[in-house]
Design a protein around this nucleic acid. Structure first.
Length: 746
DNA sequence: TGTGAAATAATTTTT
DNA sequence: TTATTTCACA
């Protein structure tokens, strides 16, 4: 039956499927049937080429994509066993490898995985330890620097080396070093570590790499345009020998540059492997020709891309409609009314519609309108299930049970629910732990040695330790879901929530109940039912798998999260400069940011199968501020013959290409000056320059200054009214709201 | 230790 | 606008 399926493929698809040996790059345009190609390819490998399931590795980015692929492979192969096949995400693939061998590079095999909130806590701890204020060194900025470094496989040492002479970055490098050290001490890895440490393991232990090289004879990577340098390296290590590597992607749909995706991986694939065969999938099975023409035309404004042109055998289709409204409230009403009309008179269902926007904040006005008009909708994005406070608390309990070295989780729950272990006490425990280079938990166990902690606090701590060891004894006897129930019960967590009479407590209890059913579901569908396995599962998924989503509702989401989906009717809301493209991309000195916005626009347009509406407003209130709008440049980039303007006035808001360029220059200049002025004003409030020669403007990053008490130093950070100075002899200090006299040394 | 006012910052997001 | 975090004070 595989042959039947092969016959149904178009020539390009067939070429992609049948070229199983050597390196293949499949450039798969939006809606060109790439999942179908991948699944057929796997089927072809097994059925016609006699490749065994265990020799295949198929990597995707999301769990959803991985699950879908496995299902479709199973469908294609009609019952052939796919259990031994690794169809998985980068992260779970790495966890699986690391759980087996990470001890070889000095980590504990039962490591826990930290999410971004845990990372922030850990960075804050590191800053405290280094006596740096988190005002001068914004933990978020530090973390994104660390994450960037890890995506590029830079160790702390390498990072410091590369930034020699840059005093701020060197400092960040030191924080990075401590951060890595603390992760290790906590037996924890963050998401980026999962990839980086696997590469490290492969590089330092060739025997491990060899094992996987032999195992994974055929490698396929989906969404290749989203791979980071680290992921690229990982794949390259595995594929180097046999070179049976097939990557699928679309450079035009690369929209995750800001989180480490390196578009060069796909643009330069030919350089990395021998005799690369490139297959372009350009026939689109999703959208009408009008929509494809529009998408092609917009994306052709990008310079950095591989040429590709989508076409379709489908009919021309409806023109793209553009609607201008007075403000975002009327924009919402236009969308609501159009949906109601099309449902009433054109036989559409609610689920045929999607409203896409650039930023989540835009959803509110649309939601309000849908509510007013009684239109049912699902909104995607917002707080994730596993990010909820009560869920994180319970997970923290489970983590500590599984891995007592996890200080971050321990601190989270040591006083939750309140048991009289206050901040001061925790601080003392931490000091002692870092003095003895031990985990917090081991200090807790020997708490009686600690005479500087009050007897009352010590009693509470002993009680807590007893509680935890009781719970730990349960983990050997009970299943995960039962352990969770015990934790909720024994710690008094549920009691506490029940005391809260307001609705919030009830919601939380509901969520915890759902968490228990997640655990039950886990127990029934996994072979490894251990707590460790459950925690890994939870760490590697954002939402519990919810199968019940067939309701007839309109979908609301960001364009980012719409990638990979399709809808008969799509609204792209807020087609305005500074919204889409977003202000930061316009003011950025780097043109590539506008190109990424344009790719995002391309993704948005190509979600539509039949009809596409673009909406914009004359005035928009966002973040409490009302501003007059200018039509998005992406509207100007649409071919005139593809669009229908539902009102004429909007033309006035659309500029010519030259004018958009002028506007860009102006914006960039303005933003630049704004920053300067702000820094200067804020510095002025804090620091008086005693040197009449030097102006306030001189107090900027890298400026050499002299302080009457601390001597010579260099400005390493400016934030708000704080000026952080690295003194030559006194270490780093932040001068905060003091009226200090500083001399600027020229 | 807990509360409420005040300050502040606000793309995009999966793992 | 609003969600979050900080800070002063009881």
């Amino acid at each position: 039956m595989i042959l039947d399926i092969l016959d149904k493929l178009n020539p390009a698809q067939r070429e992609a499927v049948e070229n199983t040996e050597g390196a293949v790059l499949i450039l798969a345009g939006a809606g060109s049937g790439k999942t179908r190609v991948l699944t057929t390819r796997i089927g072809h490998l097994m059925e016609n080429k006699g490749v065994k399931a265990e020799n295949i590795l198929a990597i995707t980015f999301t769990n959803k994509a991985a699950n879908e692929m496995r299902e479709r492979v199973e469908e294609t192969l009609e019952g052939t066993d796919t259990k031994e096949m690794w169809i998985t995400t980068f992260h779970s693939c790495c966890v699986r490898i690391l759980r087996k061998s990470i001890n070889k590079i000095g980590y504990n095999r039962s490591f826990v995985i930290y999410d971004s909130a845990d990372q922030v806590t850990l960075v804050k701890d590191c800053l405290r330890e280094l006596n740096l204020s988190d005002k001068a060194f914004d933990p978020k900025v530090i973390l994104s620097a660390i994450s960037n470094a890890k995506d590029k496989l830079y160790s702390p040492k390498k990072f410091i080396q590369l930034n020699e002479g840059d005093i701020t970055k060197t400092k960040i490098g030191e924080i990075y070093a401590l951060y890595q050290d603390r992760l290790k001490r906590n037996s924890a890895l963050d998401f980026d570590d999962l990839i980086m440490k696997t590469v490290e393991l492969f590089k330092e232990h060739p025997e491990v790499l060899d094992f996987y090289r032999n195992k994974f004879r055929y490698i396929m990577v989906d969404e290749y345009q989203d791979t980071s340098k680290a992921q690229y390296e990982l794949i390259k290590l595995l594929a180097k020998q046999h070179q049976n590597i097939c990557v699928v992607g679309d450079d035009d749909q690369s929209i995750y540059g800001w989180r480490g995706a390196d578009i060069r991986n796909i643009l330069e694939f030919e350089r990395d492997y021998d005799n690369v065969r490139i297959v372009k999938l350009e026939q689109n099975y999703r959208s009408t020709q009008v929509i494809l023409d529009a998408a092609n035309h917009v994306i052709s404004n990008n310079i950095e891309r591989k040429r590709k042109k989508l076409w379709s055998e489908q009919k021309e289709g409806q023109l793209i409609k553009i609607q201008l409204d007075e403000n975002e409230i009327e924009e919402g009403d236009f969308i609501s009314n159009t949906i109601s009309y099309m449902r009433r008179y054109e036989g559409r269902d609610y689920k045929d519609f999607a409203v896409l926007y650039r930023a989540n904040a835009q959803a509110r006005s649309i939601e309000d309108s849908l509510n007013r008009n009684g239109i049912p909708y699902n909104i995607y994005g917002g707080i994730k299930f596993y990010e909820r406070k009560e869920i994180k608390d319970i997970i923290a309990y489970l983590r500590v049970l599984q891995n007592p070295q996890d200080d971050i989780s321990l601190k989270r729950i040591i006083n939750v629910p309140r048991r009289g272990i206050g901040l001061r006490t925790i601080e003392k425990i931490e000091d002692r732990a870092s003095l003895k280079e031990e985990s917090l938990y081991s200090v807790l166990i020997d708490i009686e040695d600690n005479s500087d902690i009050s007897r009352k606090a010590r009693a509470s701590i002993s009680e807590f330790v007893d509680l935890m060891s009781t719970l730990r004894s349960f983990t050997d006897v009970y299943s995960v879901s039962q352990v969770i129930e015990k934790v909720l019960d024994v710690t008094g967590y549920i009691d506490e929530l029940e005391k809260e009479k307001n609705g919030e407590g009830e919601d939380r209890i509901e969520n915890l109940k759902e968490f228990i059913s997640v655990a039950l579901e886990f127990e029934s569908s996994n072979e490894d039912k251990s707590l460790e396995s459950f925690l890994t599962n939870v760490a590697l998924s954002a939402e519990p798998s919810n199968e019940e989503e067939e309701e007839d509702r309109v979908s609301l989401m960001t364009i980012h999260s719409s990638k990979g989906l399709e809808f008969p009717v799509v609204f792209l809301a807020g087609m305005e400069e500074k919204i889409f493209p977003i202000a930061r991309a316009i003011s950025s000195m780097n043109d590539s940011e506008i190109e990424e916005e344009r790719r995002l626009c391309y993704v948005g347009i190509t979600r539509a199968k039949e009809e596409l509406f673009l909406t914009l407003t004359r005035k928009r209130t966002l973040y409490g501020r009302t501003n007059p709008s200018i039509a998005s440049r992406f509207i100007e980039e649409l071919p005139e013959e593809c669009i229908e303007r539902l009102n004429k006035e909007q033309k006035e808001l659309t500029y010519s290409k030259a004018n958009y360029n002028m506007l860009d220059k102006y914006t960039k200049k303005y933003m630049n000056n704004m920053n300067k002025v702000q820094v200067a004003q804020k510095a002025k409030a804090t620091i008086k320059s005693s040197n009449a020669e030097s102006s306030i403007d001189d107090i900027k990053l890298g400026a050499k200054v002299h302080h009457p008490k601390f001597g010579l130093g260099t400005v390493v950070a400016l934030k708000g009214p704080d000026v952080t100075i690295a003194f030559d002899n006194q270490g780093i200090k932040t001068i905060n709201k003091e009226y200090t006299t500083l001399d600027i040394v020229k």
